[in-house]
Amino acid sequence: MSEYANKKTRGTFIAAVFAMQGFGILFGTIVTIIVSSAFRHAFPAPPFYIDAAASIGPEADYVWRIIVMFGTIPAALTYYWRMKMPETARYTALIAGNTKQATSDMSKVLNKEISEEDVQGERATGDTWGLFSRQFMKRHGVHLLATTSTWFLLDVAFYSQNLFQKDIFTKIGWIPPAKTMNALEELYRIARAQALIALCGTVPGYWFTVAFIDIIGRFWIQLMGFTMMTIFMLAIAIPYDYLVKPGHHTGFVVLYGLTFFFANFGPNSTTFIVPAEIFPARLRSTCHGISAATGKAGAIIGAFGFLYASQDQKKPETGYSRGIGMRNALFVLAGTNFLGLLLSLLVPESKGKSLEELSKENVGDDDTIFLYSIIVFFAATTF
């Protein structure tokens, strides 16, 4: 995506593609609401505390299958369209050295005639670099550290909040205790609550990024996002016992929704965008993949860690050991966001710069680049 965009609107272009994830989240909750509501009315069942076996019902087994089947439709369409997409012209011309194919691909994508001379040029200086080469570590070692660490820390906090919204909603009384509902009723209520969070916090956050990323810049949006996530998480954790009491749930939901807003108008968007811009063409996808994979490792840790850590210190749920409690778990997430804020100081600003300028593909081997990276790293970590 970054290689087909111009430097003035590249951030907006990539952010708009990524922002469609927000509509996907919202659409997923809508599908769940419709399917669970239809089955709930067609097949009434008693609450769990009255009859545990009957509260699930054999029909409930069809519900999750239908929802998953709906999810395969966009996945199949994505696969088809992705197979129709050509390799980017930068890679084809600069790395593969096939200017003829690059010319043909650009003509199709841009829908206009382009001569081979327009894309002629020298192969990128970074063409011979390997991921573990000295040249790469000099120029982009700190950058890779920045993109992987911030994506990791973001996903620790972001996915723990996402996957266990139902536990938080129950704690604040937004949905009834699970034992007072049957399976379909619980699914319906959770999906409805998640849809509200997505509609009011998640989706607007994505599109605020689209609107402002080429004005404010990636660096400041990421810094602002981690800062606000830290503040709002502390604003929930400190008066947690007060916010979970009846009559104060609105404040909790507003603060909780704002953490999602600034996650998406912040690092959840920028951690995806920046790695697609700052690395050389030969290793751009590799480094983006490494950053993303590190982020998903954080998601796994966040999801399972939050599940166990948030258990009550005195009365954990059946099958779980005692944890540190929901309030303390929220403090841990606030600390995670703050650490992400500090490591964001290592992320370079890519607004208004060409990919070649960012990746330094046309810069010779110079030890001053390595020295500069070391200075930036120690200055940021010391701060």
Score class of each variant (00 low, 15 high):
F331T: 08
L199F: 15
G266R: 08
V17H: 05
L110G: 04
L345Q: 12
T286C: 05
G97Q: 01
I114S: 10
V244W: 03
A89E: 05
I190A: 04
F39Y: 15
L371R: 13
A292M: 06
F226I: 08
I73S: 11
R322A: 07
T202G: 06
M69Y: 11
K296V: 14
I215T: 14
K360H: 11
Q135D: 10
G298K: 09
F18I: 14
L341P: 03
L187H: 07
I114F: 13
W174G: 01
I290V: 08
G266I: 06
I278H: 02
A334I: 01
F13W: 05
S55Y: 01
P275V: 07
W81E: 02
L187D: 06
W64M: 08
P348W: 03
H41E: 14
F261W: 00
A237N: 13
I221E: 02
L110H: 04
G201K: 11
L330N: 06
M224S: 15
F212P: 04
D61S: 13
G201H: 03
N328E: 12
T202V: 15
Q222V: 06
S321D: 12
V363M: 13
A193T: 07
T250F: 15
F136L: 13
A42I: 12
N98E: 10
A76T: 13
V363L: 09
L154A: 07
L153Y: 07
T148H: 00
L184D: 10
P47L: 04
N6K: 10
F279T: 07
K179G: 08
P58C: 04
P74A: 00
V156P: 00
A379H: 01
V376P: 07
S2F: 03
F219C: 05
G340H: 00
F370A: 15
S310F: 10
R218L: 01
L153D: 04
D127K: 12
I172F: 00
A195E: 11
L184W: 10
A96P: 02
T88S: 15
A60M: 03
A276T: 12
E113M: 08
N337W: 09
S354C: 00
S36Y: 05
F383W: 10
Y159L: 13
F262P: 09
S36F: 01
Q194L: 11
R218Y: 05
A38Q: 13
A334W: 01
L307P: 00
A5Q: 03
G173I: 04
W129P: 03
M233E: 02
G295A: 10
R322M: 11
A299Y: 05
T209P: 00
T148F: 05
A19S: 14
M20D: 10
A380M: 01
M1L: 12
A38V: 15
I50S: 06
V274R: 05
K108Q: 14
N362A: 08
G225F: 03
S160H: 09
K7L: 05
W129G: 04
S2V: 08
I114M: 11
N362G: 02
G201W: 01
L223T: 11
